Deep mutational scan, measured.
Amino acid sequence: VKVFRALYTFEPRTPDELYFEEGDIIYITDMSDTNWWKGTSKGRTGLIPSNYVAEQ
């Protein structure tokens, strides 16, 4: 598990995607895809765009 911080707010387009706000901490559990990672924030899990976060 790696810890990342959201650089921007992300509004999901599908139920599989995770909503998060700029500054949120996201725990990444799967980075197997280059563009979409699986992450958890505020008790919810979903896909996030990798270019919206920076490693802490």
Rank of each mutant, 00 (worst) to 15 (best):
T40H: 14
R13A: 12
S50G: 04
F10M: 05
T34F: 10
Y8L: 10
F20C: 04
R13D: 08
E11Y: 15
T29F: 15
N51Y: 09
D24P: 01
Y8I: 08
T45Q: 11
S32C: 08
M31L: 06
N51S: 14
I48M: 04
P49G: 04
S50I: 06
M31G: 03
D30Y: 04
V1I: 13
M31C: 13
P12C: 04
E17V: 04
P49T: 05
V3Q: 08
K2T: 09
T45G: 07
V3G: 05
S50D: 03
P49L: 07
Y8V: 07
K42D: 13
V3D: 03
Y27T: 09
S50V: 09
P12F: 06
D24M: 05
L7Y: 03
G46P: 01
V53P: 02
D30T: 03
S50R: 11
R13C: 11
Y27L: 12
G39S: 01
E22S: 10
L47D: 02
I28G: 00
D30L: 04
N51A: 13
S50M: 08
T34Q: 14
T9D: 09
A54G: 10
E11R: 13
T9L: 06
G43R: 03
R13Y: 06
Y52E: 02
A54N: 07
M31D: 09
Y27E: 11
P12K: 03
D16I: 08
E55D: 09
D33Y: 04
F4L: 04
R13P: 05
K42E: 09
Y27M: 10
K42I: 04
T40L: 08
V53Q: 01
F4W: 09
V3T: 11
Y52W: 06
G23K: 02
E11D: 10
P15D: 13
M31A: 06
F4C: 08
G43C: 08
E55Q: 12
Y27V: 11
Y8P: 00
L18W: 01
E55I: 12
D30K: 03
T34P: 15
W36Y: 07
D33S: 09
D24C: 04
E17N: 03
D24H: 02
Y8E: 07
L18P: 00
L47Q: 04
D30W: 04
Y8T: 07
S32N: 12
A54F: 13
G46W: 03
P49I: 03
